[in-house]
């Protein structure tokens, strides 16, 4: 089911090279989908980057982390989004350099609606 949700995300978003689901509490990639086989160390690096960026607390108080982060470079665009504000489950994806990201966050929310229906419903 998780893999299907990630694959559906990639079908919805043009230029998505990889979509993955991570658990920041354990620093592990729970599932991922891509046309190519990604080395484990690159998946680990993505998970580490997500953990570092989303644990930053710029001006929101020491207890608050970040909900979303986007890191764009000339070779691609990495997007990370938590499932719930205090949750450790994080969706991530890498997009082509010029891919539009307008729909990415909404599509990521759909992934979590599939995976964490109870937690998400509590937020509504």
């Amino acid at each position: 089911m998780t893999h299907d949700a990630l694959r559906n995300f990639r079908h919805k978003i043009a230029g998505c090279e990889i979509a993955l689901l991570m658990d920041l509490s354990t620093g592990t990639v729970l599932a991922w989908d891509s046309d190519l086989k990604w080395p484990q160390e690159e998946l680990d690096a993505l998970c580490g980057l997500a953990a570092r960026l989303l644990s930053a607390a710029p001006g929101n108080g020491p207890e608050m982390g970040m909900m979303r982060a986007m890191l764009a470079t000339e070779t691609g665009c990495q997007v990370f989004q938590r499932g719930t504000p205090q949750g450790d489950e994080v969706f991530g994806c890498i997009l082509a350099p010029e891919a539009a990201i307008d729909d990415v966050f909404e599509a990521a929310a759909w992934v979590f609606d599939d995976l964490l229906p109870g937690d998400r419903a509590a937020l509504a």
Binding site: G48, L49, L53, S55, M64, M70, L71, T73, Q78, P85
Partner: peptide, 27 residues
């Protein structure tokens, strides 16, 4: 944020000429 982006344990991608980072807070 820059130190988190540049941390040695897991690079934020290959070296590039420019980078744009945007983070959004909780709540």
């Amino acid at each position: 944020l820059l130190s988190r982006m540049n941390a040695p344990e897991g690079a934020a991608g290959a070296p590039t000429r420019w980078r744009l980072l945007i983070v959004a807070g909780v709540g």
